[in-house]
Design a protein around this nucleic acid. Structure first.
Lengths: 207, 207
DNA sequence: TCAAGATGTGAGCTGATGCTCATATTATGG
DNA sequence: CCATAATATGAGCATCAGCTCACATCTTGA
């Protein structure tokens, strides 16, 4: 017995069935990303998104129940682009040294945050969170990348997760701050981040 | 030759001269903080602020040129409250060990972020930044707290500042993430943060 | 005491924007 | 070929919040 959710509240009112409508929806998300990056959430208007997408406002609301749903579609697209840039732990051999692992991960995180940096900041800082459905999946995947590192230094599963979270949050903090100072290119920042991550992992091992 | 800035664009249109108007202004900022924490930036309306403050909307606009100026006044008040909670480096003897210093600073940072946590998050995440005039002063002061630590491990002034920024950004990242998970009370988080800061400082010393 | 300045008031103007709906156009499948 | 479903359109409705302004009230200082 599945509860019926009225179209007005679903992420998408109608599923686009024909090719025509599928490209309309893609165009709206694509245009939305551009408008959002350019104007920011406060000046992100559905009418402009439709205009830029070359669609009518009516078409837009045929597939998205409201403004926020568009932003959420944009966020999903962006987050999966991020994950694609991060080194995949499954594909790496276990043969790498800890320092090599740290190097790769941090380089990946910096590269990921260099993708459409402005959009990234706006998605994080300005767009209200709301439905965490996808974010949860994303965060799990993201954390997993760090657990690869902590597992090398630690056995305990629970402490492992905690350490991974600490690392992830610390690195995010540094990288976001660096980005807002437009210092993401700086190799000095990268070096210090790696130093910090390595030092922490070493300290964990000793404790 | 000072440039004349029209009242419409100044932080405050009119300076409140009498006691009566001074308490009106304070009441507006106080009420504004409550409304902002409760409703969030998107639903932060000047009319409600005035109503809650027990003042008229006209009075509000007599002293604040626009909605954002109120938010900025709230931010200033909040940031200076934060600084007041952080241990003052000037007042501490230099006699404390490095670990003691780390303990005190991290405890202070956690305590600072426990003050009106919801307002804090909204001020950081939702309210558009705009005029960085005060924030710059705040950040300088804030960074200074970390430089106390890095100076112990390092001599080089430039690398010192860089290291302080790295530490500050990392700790902020962890603390904000913990706060949004409502884990700011957790002593485990505090322990790990301290471990990370200490480990990084040690690594700096050795390099 | 009383002008002049400081302060307080709130109805309502103004502009903006999310979203609907009646209608038109295009595609599909039998 | 045509009935039905899918898709597209955009004028305009409904709402809402920032802010103004003409006027009232209070305080100050001479």
């Amino acid at each position: 017995m599945t509860t019926r959710i009225p179209a007005k509240h679903r992420a998408m009112r109608k599923a686009p069935k024909q090719l025509r409508s599928q490209s309309t929806v893609e165009g709206i998300v694509e245009a939305g990303a551009r408008v959002l990056a350019q104007r920011g959430w406060a000046k992100f208007t559905t009418n402009e998104v439709a205009r830029v997408a070359g669609a009518s406002i009516g078409s837009l609301y045929q597939y998205f129940p409201n403004k926020l749903a568009i932003a959420e579609a944009i966020r999903q697209r962006h987050l999966s682009q991020l994950l694609a840039v991060l080194p995949d732990p499954g594909k790496q051999g276990k043969a790498l040294s800890l320092n090599r692992h740290v190097d790769q991960l941090i380089d990946g995180v910096v590269a990921a945050h260099s993708i459409n940096q402005k959009l990234h900041r706006i998605l994080l800082d300005e767009v209200p969170l709301a439905a965490r459905s996808f974010d949860t999946d994303f965060e799990r995947e993201y954390l997993h990348r760090y657990e690869i590192l902590t597992r090398v230094a630690l056995d305990d599963g629970a402490r492992n997760l905690m350490a991974a979270r600490i690392l992830a949050d610390a690195v995010e903090g540094i990288v976001h701050a660096a980005a807002s100072r437009e210092e993401l290119g700086s190799s000095a920042v990268r070096i210090e981040v790696k130093r910090m991550v390595s030092a922490y992992l070493l300290a964990l091992q000793r404790a």
